[in-house]
Nucleic acid binder design. Structure first.
Lengths: 245, 245
DNA sequence: AAGTGGTCTAGACCACTAG
DNA sequence: TAGTGGTCTAGACCACTTC
């Protein structure tokens, strides 16, 4: 009768995997597990917490524990690709953001000294001024991505890039007007568990990693003009890259 | 005196962030926290577990709890890029695998029916036979990546791809000989917490996500010839992509 | 108001590591 | 062998959700 937290979690995990407990379904609560397996409440709790930390379940206070759902947003790094070139409809993870528009909230634009790593990448003096564009992207009212762009203040201070509204074509159109059109990009990705502040800002549930992306924009002659640090809710995103060669 | 698990974790987290507790350093143990904060052992334990699930600490049974270290391996998706083109020495996360060679272990090659998603992507009938190449990559004796490749058995059955040793130039050289040279690639990435089996296979510590990558190789005329599913230890990898235009 | 999860206590026993 | 983490118990009180 009496089992361990791991064993109870194993049983529930198997029921989730088999589809017996579908995404969104309610898992047995702590009292139910206490009765069924003859364990202490803390043990039942641990079993459920194991599933949460594996990203399989979500707990809602006062309501219950539920099987987690995954309806990803697809982020395609290479923008201007024709569907025909790469073959459509071949995605492993289906993802439709079509019906769920993404909006920018909490936009803040200001000038500040460049962080050390950003200064190094942008080829600036230590502590040189940069224009910072800090924003939060939201889908259906839920934050999904935080992004902070850094650009040399000497380069963009007088342009609309230093304004909240960058105008038609956005930052890259303005950079082109300044003779610094980005044509190549380097992205560095890392995934890890979020800090507490990140959890709050992105409304992350336990067991959700984040994806940290640093994107550097380069001009034709290889000059770095922008560093964009993005933080993505990994429970929501699928990243797609197209590589030639 | 008596504090909550969260508060104790906050204090330790701050000491890690400030560098007071450096990567690799030993954190105060459970008994020490019990004495210092006047809480029960379970509460001290929870404080330390919080840091572990945030990926900040690692617990070693019988030894102690330690600040986690991060010495990443860099995976550059675009292989044949000259350093000059993209500007060297501009990485956010420094990463040297130079001194730590990667070796293949647990190589298994066999023929089997294609999984549904793989069959769809490779344009095969449901359940058509594929050659499967399953392998584990290891650095300094520690597994860092599992990879499973799928190729149409009708295409590659007679070639060295169906052997353990694919010969000089590897799988892609053999595909070229078969008139199916891959020239473009699509990668889909997702990050999530690992299952229990994945944790065991990759020797993951708690609080470590995995990065799941599906790479599809396409020929010049857009025919998909290989699907490679990779599972990376996110605590070890930094991914790098180069994008044009 | 009943049910759910959130957190803590004080004690127990075990397994592993290190000196 | 002493110290460390791993796990469980039986009970307590609280906050939130749902009806």
């Amino acid at each position: 009768m009496a089992e361990t937290a791991r064993e109870i979690a194993d049983e529930l995990r198997e029921r989730i995997r088999s589809g017996d407990l579908a995404p969104g379904a309610r898992l047995p609560g702590e009292p139910a597990l206490v009765k069924k397996h003859g364990v202490a409440k803390e043990t039942a709790r641990r079993a459920l917490m194991l599933l949460v930390s594996e990203g399989l379940a979500v707990r809602r206070k006062g309501s219950g524990t539920y099987v987690r759902e995954f309806q990803p947003i697809r982020r395609v790094a290479n923008r201007r690709l024709s569907q025909e070139t790469w073959g459509a409809g071949r995605a492993i993870w289906s993802a439709d953001i079509g019906e769920r528009p993404m909006t920018v909230t909490e936009l803040r634009v200001y000038e500040a000294p460049a962080p050390d790593d950003v200064a190094r990448i942008l080829d600036l003096e230590e502590g040189a001024a940069v224009v910072v564009r800090d924003r939060l992207f939201t889908v259906e009212g839920e934050p999904v991505q935080a992004a902070v762009s850094y650009l040399s203040a000497d380069l963009v201070r007088e342009s609309a890039i230093a304004q909240e509204d960058t105008g038609p074509g956005g930052t890259y159109a303005r950079l082109a007007e300044l003779g610094a059109k980005p044509v190549r990009f380097v992205e560095e990705l890392r995934s890890r568990m979020p800090s507490q502040e990140e959890t709050e800002r992105l409304h992350l549930t336990e067991g959700t990693p984040v994806v940290e992306i640093y994107r550097t924009a380069l001009t034709e002659d290889g000059r770095p003009v922008e560093v964009n640090r993005m933080l993505l809710d990994a429970g929501v995103y699928v990243m797609e890259y197209h590589i030639t060669g």
